[in-house]
Design a protein around this nucleic acid. Structure first.
Length: 396
RNA sequence: GCAGGGGUGGUCGAGUGGUUAAUGGCACCGGGCUGUAAACCCGGCGGGUUCACACCCUACGUAGGUUCGAAUCCUACCCCCUGCA
């Protein structure tokens, strides 16, 4: 276990490339492999914090987003309210994305320069300039346990030249992120530190993760990793995947990169993925994941089950008195039928989104719990095969 | 009874002689969603044959009529709404 750092990390068990580990944050332990629900605007949409903390979901860490929270409610408000934990009432660990993803997802609304990114706010059209330094400042005001370096997320179909340019920019931004981040920690800008007892053998500071880019090109990915490790971070992420490239390509990049990433640091695959993706990428050596799928798809009528996806909008469920997933023990599956959930969705009732989101999160988080257990008991290979097989068997 | 207005596809509602199987909305059916511009977006939606291009049939209250051609014009009838008796 690393001590005095911002984050503790140890590998508890390994099976092939898969590993079960423990990340110690200043706001509690996070067992890995872990799925981190996405809470872009300071809320995991459609859920209450009590649910996330409940034994059933037991989410140990959730995300927040720098770009979105920077626009609304804004840094000053966040500072005035004591950081994102106090502002939202979430007392467990947080990880904030840097805004790098918005460089990709809001591609039509920004211009990239060496200095940073000029965004035209999607909220009101105002010009807003985000740079590694600004991102670090906002993330200090947010006070998450894990801060992400500001990167450029290039499109999956980027050419080698484009990907190189982007990767090199990301590398320069990584160094700038590190520098500004360290200064902010020294200055005590970290809003999340307030009120914490600095026990647990940790420094009490925020942790900073670097992000490996390079699109689909192995040479660029390797160079990106080397340059990121050279800067030095508390953890390392693979970014720039599931942004338009083919699924097989994503697995290849992860398969090649994860084993090259420092063993003594947690490895985080950003923005991934489906239940199958999680299993595949755990098998390739990834420890941390986040994805909007369980929450977004919960709102749009799609349930993840042990036998694959179920579209609650389909007429075939109109009189189906069975739960979403007969193998699921979540509160929604214990109480409600597919017929009722379909009715709620069809009538536009907000409860439909709430219940499907709950089930989906329960499924994702429970799956990861089982993954961890399987790795620790040396049964991950079998678990993965059986789980994947069942996933593709189709909902009855 | 008289005077106006009106009856269009599951529904509401455009269209008022010819690219009209008929604009739109809703409903319905299906699909998509991977570091959240997403409680959102896309497609289908009279019937039949066809892999498809395409073709055929049926349709704008009912029945006739005018016209090369009608949901659109004319006549009669039925029904609905409003006002006056």
């Amino acid at each position: 276990m690393t001590t005095a750092g911002a984050l503790g990390w140890k590998v508890l068990a390994e099976e092939g490339e898969a590993r079960a580990g423990l990340v110690e944050t200043r706001r509690g332990p996070v067992e890995t492999p872990v799925f981190m629900p996405v809470g872009t605007l300071g809320t995991v949409k459609g859920t209450r914090f009590e649910e996330l903390e409940s034994e059933e979901l037991d989410a140990r860490i959730i995300l927040g987003n720098t770009y979105h929270l920077w626009l609304r409610p804004g840094v000053e408000t966040l500072r005035a309210c004591g950081g994102l934990h106090r502002f939202t009432g979430w007392e467990r660990a947080l990880l904030t994305d840097s805004g790098g993803f918005q460089v990709w997802s809001l591609g039509d609304l920004r211009k990239i320069r060496e200095e940073g990114v000029e965004f035209r706010s999607h909220v009101d059209g105002a010009q807003r300039f985000l740079s590694p330094e600004v991102s670090m400042e906002v993330q200090a005001a947010l006070g998450a346990e894990v801060v992400m370096a500001f990167d450029e997320c290039a499109p999956g179909e980027a050419t080698h030249d484009e990907a190189r340019r982007s990767m090199e920019l990301t590398a320069r931004w990584a160094a700038r992120s590190r520098t500004r981040f360290d200064a902010l920690q020294r200055e005590g800008a970290d809003a999340g530190r307030r009120g914490l007892d600095a026990a647990r053998g940790l420094s009490g500071a925020q942790a900073l993760f670097g992000i490996v880019q390079g699109a689909t090109f192995p040479d660029l990915r390797r160079e990106s990793l080397a340059r990121t490790v050279e800067v030095g971070f508390d953890g390392y992420a693979i970014g720039g995947l599931s942004v338009g490239e083919e699924k097989g390509v994503m697995y290849e990049v992860v398969e090649e990169m994860a084993p090259l990433m420092p063993r003594e640091r947690p490895r985080y695959l950003m923005g991934v993925g489906t239940p199958e993706d999680l299993l595949e990428c755990v098998a390739r050596g990834v420890d941390m994941f986040d994805c909007v799928l369980p929450t977004r798809n919960g709102r749009t009528g799609q349930a993840y089950t042990s036998r694959g996806r179920l579209n609650i909008k389909n007429a075939r469920h109109a009189r189906d008195t069975r739960p979403l997933d007969e193998a699921c023990a979540c509160a929604v599956c214990r109480r409600h039928s597919r017929a009722y959930l379909r009715h709620l969705h069809a009538t536009g009732e907000m409860l439909a989104a709430i219940l499907l989101t709950h089930h989906n999160l329960a499924f994702f988080l429970d799956t990861m719990r089982r993954v961890r257990q399987a790795i620790r008991s040396g049964e991950f290979t079998r678990f993965r095969r059986e789980f994947t097989e069942r996933l593709s068997s189709g909902v009855e």
